[in-house]
């Protein structure tokens, strides 16, 4: 089981920046390399686990490079670390490198864009629990919204390499073609479905694209694309697992669809967190309890970030 292979060891490690490539517009892919103990700890990172990056000392970009909507907040000081999951983890010799897919949304990710090769970054991790593979899984559906595509790329790799008998299909959604966090310009292949995303195709995983405005792939939310696919599928339900990462409203809908179709579902949740190691207790996720109407708060950092979709008390708050 994937769960058992998760890293037991975690710590505060120094990583070296290998690359920090702008994929397009606000999307970047940062590659960090660990050696020594850090390499050992991160080599065992499970898909869906995360790390906390200290970006407090990272430089701001030049004024011209700051997007208008962030100009007002750009110079805010960063105190707390920021959590990121991984789009890829690779081990070569005694080094481990991790890929972080990120979007520039605030002062910390803005600073992140200036990280350049050979700079070092303090990384706390690997943290939390990743996706798991239930016994008897035959088909895995990876459903992402926007930046949620990151950890599902890592999962696609793990599933295809460690579980060759499982069929894997990716569904990637966003508001528009521009908002899809992939390198390939999808508006140029707008109506083309299947094998369209190199990030998944390189693992032999077919991918379906959905955009709210129809500028690429299916017109409508990715959950609509998923529903339609499940409606056509003859084997929906049996031995199928949905793995999902994206905005919470989307995850709630995915969990609802999964419940209707009696499909196992795992969701990667996001919460504001200070520490990532269950000290601060801030990243509470309201969860159902079995045999009672009471709910409990679990911690996104410690009990998650991946939860069973049926466990999360969607929309109660």
């Amino acid at each position: 089981m994937l769960e058992e292979s998760l890293a037991k060891k975690r710590g505060n490690f120094s990583a070296t920046v290998c690359a920090n490539k702008q994929i397009r517009e606000r999307f970047y892919r940062l590659v960090l390399e660990f050696s020594g103990e850090g390499a050992e700890a991160f080599a065992k990172t499970g898909a869906g686990q995360f790390a906390q990056l200290d970006l407090s000392d990272t430089a701001l970009p030049s004024v011209e490079a700051i997007p208008d909507d962030l100009a007002d907040v750009a110079e805010r000081k960063i105190l707390l670390r920021r959590p990121f999951s991984f789009a890829d983890v690779t081990t070569k010799g005694n080094k481990t490198s991790v890929d972080i897919l990120y979007c520039v949304i605030g002062p910390a990710t803005l600073r992140m864009t200036t990280l350049s090769a050979k700079e070092s970054v303090s990384v706390l991790g690997p943290l939390g629990n990743g996706f798991w593979v239930p016994d008897g899984t035959k088909t895995a559906l990876l459903v992402s919204g926007g930046m949620g595509a990151g950890p599902l790329q890592h999962l696609a790799k793990v599933l295809t390499s460690d579980f060759p008998d499982i069929d894997v299909i990716a569904f990637a959604g966003a508001r528009s073609a521009e908002a899809l966090p992939f390198e390939r310009r999808l508006d140029e292949i707008s109506q083309q479905l299947g094998f369209s995303l190199p990030e998944f195709a390189k693992y032999g995983v077919e991918s379906l694209v959905a955009t709210d405005d129809g500028s690429a792939g299916f017109t409508g939310p990715v959950t609509g694309c998923l529903s339609e696919w499940l409606g056509r599928s003859k084997s929906a339900g049996k031995g199928m697992v949905i793995y999902s990462c994206g905005p919470e409203a989307m995850l709630a809908r995915v969990a609802e669809i999964a419940k209707e179709k009696n499909i196992d579902c795992q969701v990667s949740m996001e919460r504001r967190m200070a520490c990532g190691i269950s000290l601060c207790q801030s990243c509470a996720v309201e969860c159902r309890t079995t045999g009672s109407n009471e709910t409990v708060y679990k911690l996104c950092c410690q009990d998650g970030p991946v939860f069973d979709g049926s466990e999360v008390a969607w929309g109660i708050e």
Binding site: A274, S282, E317
Partner: peptide, 15 residues
Amino acid sequence: KGNATPRIVETDSGM
């Protein structure tokens, strides 16, 4: 159980 979320927010040099 504790309070509902969000439970934290970062501020300049604090939280």
